[in-house]
Design a protein around this nucleic acid. Structure first.
Lengths: 147, 147
DNA sequence: TCGTTTGGTTTTATGTTGCAACCAAAATTT
DNA sequence: AAATTTTGGTTGCAACATAAAACCAAACGA
């Protein structure tokens, strides 16, 4: 499914997730899953991608334990795709992507959806990287340090 | 280069960034750029991808103002690819990806690189989404709210 | 000045994607 | 309960993207 390139076996914790997720479509599937979409047809309608591709992506996400396939609770015999704990761990990533998108693609007073705190209805804060002692860290304040 | 699918024109601030970034390779290029890689050959050696693909990806990243092409400051006549402000805005996304990778792909006492605060040398804190009033927010505490 | 490195482009074989048609099981309608 | 529709896929095929290798010009180093 996903090509076996050198990076997939890298110990780098950036490269390996990419292989597990699969591709851009998978990320959009996950985004939809966070918004409550669970069924094949819903994903397909929401994303407008070919059914064979959707089928392959869902299978891959299930294989990587990002989604799981559960019987539909209610009346029906169909089953639904829901995020696992691991899948829910991708929430900050989706938020980061969204905030970057808001910053650089929705600037022109254009109306766009925004992520809000459910309780108060206010927009959420920006994601920030902080040191143990609370200092705000930018790209130049950090370093990837071998094992 | 990147296929023109329906999602690319979506107002959704999740889908549009994906189109700008391009693909997984681009994200690894950006990761390397954050770590100080600037030149074609360095990217190629670090990532091990075909030169024509690297060439296309770099061109795309430059076209989307994520990287820019600058003359090498020093002696040489070559030029280098460096992150723009927009590109540097992807830092939280890379961190989110990395933290997820650490959580789910490096669990087994395996030695792996870790992102540290340059000043103190300690690992950084986890990214957290918070409400305006500081409450910690999980996926179920948020909502995407139309315009 | 001659060879080597750098930064690509071109060519070609192979893999992946996307569309459309098809299909079976489940649900719904009559 | 029979017929129809909806759901959730699979299969086949054409178009497109990718990967590897050969090639090349400009820059650099000796």
């Amino acid at each position: 499914m996903v090509k076996r390139t050198s990076h997939e076996f890298s110990a780098c914790p950036v490269a390996r997730p990419l292989d597990a997720i699969g591709d851009w479509w998978s990320l959009l599937i996950i985004r939809d899953a966070f918004e409550g979409v669970t069924r094949f047809g819903e994903f397909q309608k929401s994303l407008g991608l070919a059914k064979n591709i959707l089928s392959a992506r869902l299978r891959n996400l299930v294989a990587h334990d990002i989604l799981e396939l559960k019987p539909c609770a209610d009346n029906s015999n169909y089953n639904q795709y829901v995020l696992t704990e691991k899948g829910r761990g991708l929430f900050p990533l989706l938020v980061a992507l969204r905030q970057w998108g808001e910053d650089y693609f929705c600037t022109e007073g254009e109306e766009h959806v925004v992520l809000v705190d459910r309780e108060k209805g206010e927009p959420v804060r920006r994601l920030e990287l902080r040191a143990q002692d609370g200092r705000l860290l930018g790209p130049d304040d950090t370093l990837v340090s071998g094992h």
